[in-house]
Design a protein around this nucleic acid. Structure first.
Lengths: 198, 198
DNA sequence: GGTCACGGCTATCACTCGTTAGCCATCAGG
DNA sequence: CCTGATGGCTAACGAGTGATAGCCGTGACC
């Protein structure tokens, strides 16, 4: 593995652990065995490291999402696949997802706007997925917006608590989360509420 | 309102917007109309502002939680109330919750350990809530741990997307999220899966 | 009216940070 | 063997940081 990619990995880990502002170029250098100024032989700036990291993360997520929902027209299956991709991505790219969520503020314009735009597109696609399921009578939710946020939040939570060395395998976590998401949107076969009055 | 509490409010908003490391004492001062050094007539240090903020937030959440689950023994009702308190807290204290989640790394020891301990206690209590419901045959989840994380993540997500001026009132959001949580743990009257094979 | 706490202020200290400049060892290619 | 690219290094700059020191106007209180 080249020095350049080792630097990216070290930056990712340090940004996740200490935050962008809390990480110094000297820290990143030390993590790959060189001094801070030597990093500039491989990287344009500290901000560039963040920009690359966040745009690559968001692009990767969007690509995976599009591939996941492209294969079928059935609303339930589409959401199932979208959640599968969503959760799997957050399991495999825990640190990227964590940095992507918590360091948006450190991303300078115009890159921040672009990344935010892609995230909005991602959220919009999920919302439409839920909408379609509701329109087809397959999902039953009080609010499409809240339901799609809830589904997204389920997966994003992995960034906090998921560990590769944990007792549950990636596949187990993925399908349990998918099950949760489908329950959440009321995708059971015959619809049953939870006994609430309202 | 005294200057001291105005400073706390300004610090909260700035920590949420720019992060702890990204906020300077001069910024906080400017937000309340004084210079940076003058802050020290009201506050011991920048770190102190974060310590106060995070411990108060976690204590507030724990108090609310204990009051919520203390009133009844029925597992479903207990979880319902716990989720209600959880979501309501995250709606009312969006910024505190956001800072509490994202600035743990900036909290110095020994305070970080204490806050983490309280958060672990909170998570443990939620897990027990789910456990009790499963033991009583009222909930049906593949993994108690994953289900309780999912329920917690639902509420914590509010820190990102909830806005007081939004179209949905606090009460509406709270009960929809509660509904989601109960669906998620399979608290319907007659149990029905979502048709998965595994 | 003297005193004194309160709460502003400026100047300054002691660092730390990202970044640049410029030096040098290594090594491949002709 | 020269040459030039590569990728390390130290020194240093310039800007900014949290925090302290010390000054001073205001106003309450005896």
């Amino acid at each position: 593995m080249g020095t350049a990619s080792a630097i990216r990995v070290a930056a990712l880990e340090l940004f996740a652990a200490r935050g962008y502002e809390g990480t110094t170029m000297a820290d990143i250098g030390a993590a790959v065995g060189i001094r801070g100024p030597s990093l500039y032989k491989h990287v344009a700036s500290k901000q560039d490291l963040l920009v690359e990291l966040m745009t690559a993360t968001m692009d990767g997520l969007l690509d995976l999402h599009r591939a996941a929902v492209g294969g079928t027209d059935d609303p339930v299956e589409r959401l199932r696949r979208a959640v599968d991709a969503h959760v799997r991505f957050h399991a495999r790219h825990r640190l990227e997802a964590f940095v992507g969520a918590s360091e948006m503020r450190s991303l300078a314009e115009p890159h921040r706007g672009k990344v935010l735009g892609k995230r909005a597109e991602y959220e919009r696609s999920f919302r439409r997925l839920v909408e379609d399921g509701v329109a087809a009578g397959r999902f039953h939710v009080p609010s499409v917006r809240l339901a799609s946020y809830a589904v997204l939040d389920l997966g994003m939570g992995l960034a906090t608590w998921y560990r590769e060395e944990g007792e549950l395998s990636e596949n187990e976590v993925v399908w349990q989360q998918t099950e949760f998401a489908l329950r959440l949107v009321g995708a059971g076969q015959g619809w049953t509420g939870t006994g609430r009055d309202g």
